[in-house]
Design a binder for these strands. Structure first.
Lengths: 216, 216, 216, 216
DNA sequence: AATGAATGAGAGTTCATTCAT
DNA sequence: GATGAATGAACTCTCATTCAT
C-alpha cells in the first residue's frame, strides 16, 4: 500500500513522521547518554548503575549492552561527549575578535554561565579523574590544546612576555585548576552565594590575568 | 594475674614494657588510620574495603566496628587526619620570617616536596570530594583559613592592594586549584617530567603571584 | 525482474549461476550446521551462543530462528549429523570382505584416524550426553545397532561363542566406552604422545578383542 | 557462670552438646558439599547455581563465598571428594586376599553396587570432564594409579602375560571406559532393566577380563 | 575488646528469544 | 526469508554490616 503513495512528497529529507530503524537506534543511543549525563551529574559515577540509567532511558537493562560493551565504556565516552558540548557553548559565546585578557575574561564568564545551567557537568568532570581516567585525560588534553593555541597567539602579538614555553604550560594547568576550584566553591556550593560570588570571582580572575600574566 | 604486677611500674611515662589497655586501644586506632591512609592512597576510596583495611591492620573485620561506626565514618576522619600532617610539614618547612611572595613561593615549594614523598596524599585529597565530601569541606576550609590569615597580614603590610575581601577569597580558591592541577600534572603524572616540570611550575607560580597578586 | 529470466535455464541440474530460493534455504541451513559444528567442536556447547553461530554463518541472529525453533533444537540435530559423517567415513575406510577381529581392528583404526582429523567431533560427542541427551541417545543407538549387526554375523560364522544375546549388548557398550576413553586419553590429550599412544592402544585393543571376545 | 561448672565432666572428648565455632564451620562446609553433591548429581553442573546450593544448605548466598572463592572452586573440589568416597567403598567391599580376575570381578561388582545406591555420582563424574576438567583429571589419575598397582601385581604373579607396559596403560583406560559406558547404560538408564542388565554386564565383563586379559 | 561466620541487598553482565520492520 | 534492536530473567560475585561467641 505504501508503495502507491507519492514517495517524494511524503518523505522529505528530514521527515519526522516515521522514524526509521536507524533513527530510532541513534535516538536510543542519545537518550542513554543523556540519561547517563543526568544521573552521573546528580549522583556521581558510583551511583550510576546500569539499572538506573536504563530505567531513566526507558529501556530494559539488557538494551544498554546493545550500545555499550560495559559500564566503563559508557563512562569513557561520557565526559568527552559533554565536554565537547561545553566547549561548543564557550566557543559560540565569545566574541571572536576579542583578544588578550578581554578574551580570557569572556571565556571564564562563559565557563561560569555554562556551569550555572549545567550544574551536573562539574561532577562528571571532577569524578572522571577517579572513575574514567582515560576520558579525563582526553578532556584535559583537549582543554590544554585549545588554551595553548590561544596563549601562543597572545605571545605572538606581544601580549604575553617573559614566560618560557614550559612555564606557559604550567600556567595553563594553573588556570584550569583555578577555574575548577572556583567552580567548586561558587557553582557547586549552590545557594544564594552563587550570583554574587560568581561576579567577585570573575573580577578577581581578571585582575590576576591582566595584572600578572599579560604585560601592560 | 595482672594483679600481681608491680603497680608502680605499670604506667611509666613512656613504658615500652606492657602497654595499658588505653594505650593498646589508641594504638589499634592509629594503625587502622595508617592502614586506611595506605590503602586509600594507593587504591582509592572505592577499593578500600573494610576487609582490606582490617587485614592490613592485623585485626578482624569486626574489630573495625569497635573503632568506627561505619566505613564512611573512617573516611570522614581520614583526610582531616592526613591533611593536618601535611600542614604541619609545610609549617615546619618554611621560614617564619619570610613574607609576601617569597613566603608564598616557599609554601608552594614545600607543598610540592610533601607530595613527592607522599604520593598517596593527593589521591586521598582528590577523591575525598567524591567519597567524603564532609571531610573535603573540612580540609578545604582549614586550608582557606590559613591562607586567609596569611593574605590578611600581607594586606596590612601593604603587600597586596586593590583586592576586595571577597575577591581575596576567590583568589585563595584559585591558588588552591592551581596547586591541585599542577600537582595532578607534574606530581601524579610521574616519570622523568617530574623534577623539571616541578621547577618550571614553581617559577611560573612565582611570576604569577609576584607580578599579578602582589603590587610591587 | 526475475520474471524475465529464461525459464528453461533457470534450473539446470547443477546450476551454479543463480541458486533458487530452495537451494539458498538449504545452503543457509547447511552453513548454520557447519558453523555449529565448528563452534561446538572448539568451544563446547555452553559457549556456542546463537550470536556466535549466526555471526560465523554470516546471518543475523533472528535468521537462526527461521531454521531452528530453539537453540536446543540445533543441538539435538548436530550430533546425529556429524555422527553420520563419521560412520560414513569408517564404512568407506574398511575392507568389506574382512571379518572377525581383523574387521574390528580396522574399525578401531579408522575411528582413531577420523578423530585425529576431526578433533572437534569428540567434544561434540562427549558433551552431548550433558547438553543434548536426546541426540546422544540417537547416536549411541545407531552405533550399537551397527555394532550388533556386525557381531551377529560373527556369531553366525562361529567367530564368537559363549556369549548370550544380552551379554553381547553389554560387550558392545564396553567397547564403545573403551573407544571413548582411549580417545580421551590419546587423541584429546594431544601432544607427542598421540602417535605412539595410538599405536599402543590399537595393539592392546586387538589383543583384547582377539584373545578375549573371539574364540580362536 | 559456666566457669563454675565441672569442665572435665561436661566436655568429653567428642561432646555433641555444644558445637564449637570451629565445628560449626566444618559442618557448614560439609553441608555445602553435600548439597552440591545432591544438586549436581540430580541436575548437573550447569543447573547447580549458587542460589540452589545455598538454599539447600540453609545458608545465605553470601555465605557460600566464605567457603569457596568461586563456583568453579567448588566444582573442582566436588569430584575428588565424592570420588574418594566411592574408592573407599570399593576398597572396603572387596576381599583383600582375592587376586586376578576374581579380584577384578569384585571391583566391578562393588562399582556397580555403589552406583546403584549413589546414582548421582555418575553424573558428577561424567559432566566433570566438561565442567571441571581439573577435577576430572585428578580423579581419573587416581583411578589409573590404583588400577595400575593392581595390574602390576598381576603381572608379577604371572596372571597377565604378553602386554607391554604401554599397552597395559591403554588397557586401563579401556576398562575405565567400559565401566563408564556400562554404567551409563544400565545404571543411568534406570527402570526395570537395571537389575538384570547389571548381572549380564558383570558376567560379560568377567568373560572379557578372564578370557582376554588374564592368561589361563 | 576481639573475633570472623553469616547476612542479603545489589551490582554488572549474558543471552535465548521475540517481533516490528 | 532476513534483520537486529529490545527484552528480562537469571546468573555469579561483592561487601558493609551484624552478632553470637
Amino acid at each position: 500500500m505504501r508503495c502507491s503513495l507519492p514517495v517524494v512528497a511524503r518523505r522529505p529529507k528530514k521527515s519526522t513522521q516515521r522514524p526509521t530503524r536507524v533513527e530510532k537506534t541513534q535516538d536510543t543511543y542519545d537518550r542513554l547518554l543523556a540519561a547517563a549525563e543526568s544521573v552521573v551529574g546528580q549522583e556521581g559515577y558510583a551511583a550510576a548503575s546500569i539499572s538506573k540509567i536504563a530505567a531513566k532511558t526507558g529501556v530494559a537493562q539488557g538494551t544498554f549492552y546493545n550500545y555499550f560493551e560495559t559500564r566503563q565504556d559508557l563512562f569513557d565516552v561520557l565526559l568527552p561527549h559533554v565536554g565537547q558540548k561545553m566547549l561548543d557553548y564557550i566557543s559560540s559565546a565569545i566574541d571572536h575578535h576579542s583578544a588578550g585578557s578581554a578574551r580570557e575574561e569572556a571565556r571564564f564568564q562563559a565557563f561560569c554561565d555554562y556551569l550555572s545551567d549545567n550544574s551536573g557537568f562539574y561532577r562528571i568532570l571532577y569524578e572522571a579523574e577517579v572513575h574514567a581516567p582515560e576520558a579525563h585525560k582526553i578532556h584535559i588534553d583537549r582543554l590544554v590544546a585549545g588554551f595553548r593555541r590561544s596563549l601562543d597567539r597572545s605571545v605572538e602579538r606581544g601580549e604575553i612576555k617573559g614566560y618560557s614555553k614550559e612555564e606557559l604550560e604550567a600556567v595553563i594547568y594553573m588556570f584550569l585548576g583555578a577555574r575548577a576550584y572556583v567552580a567548586m566553591r561558587y557553582i557547586r556550593g549552590g545557594g544564594s552565594k552563587r550570583k554574587a560570588g560568581r561576579d567577585q570571582a570573575i573580577s578577581a580572575y581578571v585582575k590576576l590575568v591582566s595584572g600578572g600574566l599579560f604585560s601592560s
